[in-house]
């Protein structure tokens, strides 16, 4: 390679040792500058940003967990309120039913009493009617018997005996 001398480059410029001090000097200068910038500015800044982002995200996650807990709490409260309302409604229904039952019982008792009174009255009326009917039958029987006896055996007509016989017969 080094034998080629035409053109501007003499062999490999990489092997031209006369430029080495220059390259090394400027490389070291750049390295020091970049090292300074990296260690003083770049790493603290980006490290800080990443850390902050991490903490912001975990904050949001814990906030979300809080909200979820609140939502669950609200649901539980709602369920509890619903159950209470249902219980109250049932209690009111039972109470109302009991009141109605009491009034119903009262009404039934009154009605029963009235019915009993009417029945007693009717029975009394029936007894009166029956008694008068028996009396009528006895009179008819007496008259009929007396007639039959007078017609069949006029000689032995005796009102007292007839009366006595008819009464005995009716009792039997």
């Amino acid at each position: 390679m080094a034998s080629e001398t035409s053109g501007e480059a003499v062999g490999m410029p990489q092997l031209d040792f006369s430029t080495f001090p220059n390259q090394i000097f400027w490389l070291v200068v750049s390295l020091v500058v970049v090292y300074f910038i990296v260690s003083k500015v770049i790493l603290p800044r980006i490290g800080g940003v990443l850390e902050e982002r991490h903490s912001v995200i975990s904050d949001y996650i814990s906030q979300a967990a809080d909200f979820k807990k609140q939502a669950e709490q609200a649901e539980a409260d709602y369920e509890a309120a619903l159950a209470q309302a249902r219980g109250e409604a049932q209690a009111i229904a039972a109470e109302t039913k009991a009141e109605i039952q009491v009034e119903l019982n009262k009404a039934v008792a009154k009605a029963d009493a009235e019915i009993a009174a009417k029945t007693a009255e009717s029975e009394k009326a029936i007894a009166v009617v029956r008694e008068s009917a028996v009396e009528n039958v006895r009179e008819v029987a007496l008259a009929t018997t007396a007639g039959i006896v007078a017609a069949l055996m006029p000689s032995v007509s005796d009102d007292a005996a007839v009366k006595k016989a008819v009464t005995a017969r009716m009792k039997g």
Binding site: G7, A9, P13, N22, Q23
Partner: peptide, 29 residues
């Protein structure tokens, strides 16, 4: 001349390249 691009030269003037001379290495660094 594929190797010309790797040549090191002084940025200002054609003088010799001392260790402190600003060169194209300096520029690109």
């Amino acid at each position: 001349h594929p190797m010309d691009q790797f040549q090191i030269h002084s940025l200002f003037g054609d003088g010799p390249v001392h260790w402190y001379t600003p060169t194209n290495v300096t520029l690109w660094l």
